[in-house]
Design a binder for these strands. Structure first.
Lengths: 329, 329
DNA sequence: ATCGTATTTGTAATCGATTACAAAAAATAA
DNA sequence: TTATTTTTTGTAATCGATTACAAATACGAT
């Protein structure tokens, strides 16, 4: 593999001149530029990022932390991040943490090691203490999930309001027995969505009944099935269910079908995230749509700004209730 | 940020000694080792991978090229790759190429730039000429999709046999009019699966009818819907459909339902990949299961072996037909 | 031709690590 | 104690780039 020295020798110039050509410095005469360029072609030379990064102490790589790539919620966000990054001459390193502190550590070290210039964290289970420590020295943005009152800039939606609107929609349809399938309330978004759920119920003088509130450990289909099974075993069954993710809602739908009930006639159902599957179920799923692509691109822009040294402000994006068959009596 | 010099000064030793401590070389006396270790702690020092990699010309990073992270088929494979990589002290860089040559180039350059030590390519649309060129100088493995008769080692399944078995299963159920929803036949797996489909039909003296063979550009749900719509417009409708991916099959199922037909009674349906959503549809989807995790871990092991300089052989893994409701009359 | 200025090119330090080799210190033998 | 061997530590080159500064060259004006 040719290096800058070889090119310099081949072109009969110094390494400095080669470097100038590589970096488009104007102070190179057209003749020498041509000589160097042809030497570069001859030797099939590619500059080493390692040497360059070491000297410049930048890698133009952005770390993206996600708990799991199998959650379709993240795919559009990542597209947004990636396109924005590439447009700004950055690349992204997709890091699946599995919400595992050890893996998290590996990736945090990459930042400290200057192998990446900044981090976008989407892991709701991230170790906030470590993330905050890191944020003192390195550019970090949180996307979707964040720390309330924390100092790390974030981009997200108003989860409380979104949940409130979803539940209000169910109430307006005449439902009085509305269940909630929530994830673990150690996550901020879960607490916020529960708050929205409760606010809507209170506003319409409906009771909040603990037996209609299920919490799941994860967001897999199977968790939705289990939760729905529990709800259907209640002496008084709910007439509507709000699930905090489409995957949970799809599991719930499966279980409702299995027990010979019909959505939406027997039970109305709302999910969250508008993943692509949510339009493939039968009936199609009413859901809350987050501007995922925009969320990703916004996060990337914030991070790149932050790397440049700009002060960046947190942003709350709009959401939208997408009404489909699962709530259309 | 502290560097090795600072640590050396703080500990009152030379940088060489610090490096020895970092790399667990035995020739360091316990006293000095302790001094150095406490200096490292005091200064919160983390060695820079940039400096280290430049010197060692290795990055311990593996590139994983996938066309799109939104295809759930890849998630388990990636898990297999990632776990194996981490177990061997490597990390992975997940690269979404969107089958876009420009992006592909970016990632190929990372290899040339020594920012990564090897590549696992899963992109069926990868530029094989470039990949072959790269493979002359750097360790590369293909996973799932590969080049017939090429020289790059791969891990895959026997697509022809898998398709043959799936179609044979449909025939055994009494179906005589069997359609194929295939992806673009520029992809090897698509050609192989078509061959398996045709072999099964021929073996049972069933005619191969072009109007029952659909090719789609992509593997999205929407493509499955469109393909099925075409098939249902045929004067003679098929009684069974074999789709080369679960996503296509799920789209087809949606369209079948929409036209008031029943799966499996009116039309039997088989998919491919056993993605998690294939068990959430109604009816659940018969599908071909690939050993995805194993495929990933095998590919990673092959790549790591290849980086070490071992000669690695291509591997063909077993598949399995998972019979579920969509073919249970 | 001479001088001054502007442009172009080269020299060498630098980024942060590793490591061959040399030197110093400690351990052992005589 | 002195000589010899072994263990430990330090010096300095190296990886492949960038860049401040110096040197060389070209260009104009007088």
């Amino acid at each position: 593999m040719a290096n800058i020295q070889h090119v310099a020798k081949q072109a009969g110039v110094s390494v400095a001149t080669v470097s100038r050509v590589l970096n488009n410095i104007t102070t190179v005469s057209p003749k020498t530029r041509l000589k160097v360029e042809s030497a570069i072609k001859d030797l099939n030379y590619e500059p080493s990022m390692l040497g360059r990064n070491l000297r410049n102490s930048e890698s133009r790589l952005l770390l993206v932390l996600i708990p799991s790539i199998s959650n379709p919620f993240y795919t559009e966000i990542i597209n947004g991040i990636e396109n924005t990054a590439i447009a700004n001459n950055y690349n992204i390193l997709l890091c699946e943490t599995d919400s595992n502190p050890q893996r998290e550590n590996i990736y945090f070290n990459m930042i400290k090691n200057k192998l990446a210039d900044g981090v976008i964290s989407m892991d709701p289970a991230v170790n906030m203490q470590k993330l905050n420590e890191l944020a003192e020295q390195y550019p970090i943005i949180q996307c979707s999930e964040y720390e309330e009152g924390g100092s790390i800039p974030y981009v997200t939606i108003d989860n409380e309001l979104a949940a409130y609107r979803a539940v209000k929609h169910l109430i307006k349809l005449g439902n009085k027995r509305i269940a909630l399938i929530n994830s673990d309330e150690k996550f901020l978004y879960a607490r916020q969505r529960r708050n929205g759920y409760e606010r809507a119920l209170k506003e319409f003088d409906l009771p909040i009944r603990e037996e209609w509130i299920c919490n799941t450990n994860q967001l897999d289909f199977e968790n939705g099935i289990q939760a729905m099974r529990k709800l259907l075993q209640q002496p008084e069954k709910p007439s509507a269910v709000f699930a905090v993710s489409d995957t949970l809602a799809i599991g719930a739908l499966k279980e409702i079908n299995a027990s010979q009930l019909k959505v939406p006639d027997d039970i109305a159902l709302i999910g969250f995230d508008k993943i692509s599957f949510s339009n493939m179920t039968n009936p199609t799923l009413t859901t809350v749509s987050q501007p995922m692509y925009k969320m990703g691109s916004t996060a990337a822009n914030m991070l790149i700004g932050s790397i440049k040294g700009n002060k960046v402000e947190s942003i709350i994006l709009d959401h939208e209730l997408v009404i489909r068959e699962s709530t259309m009596g």
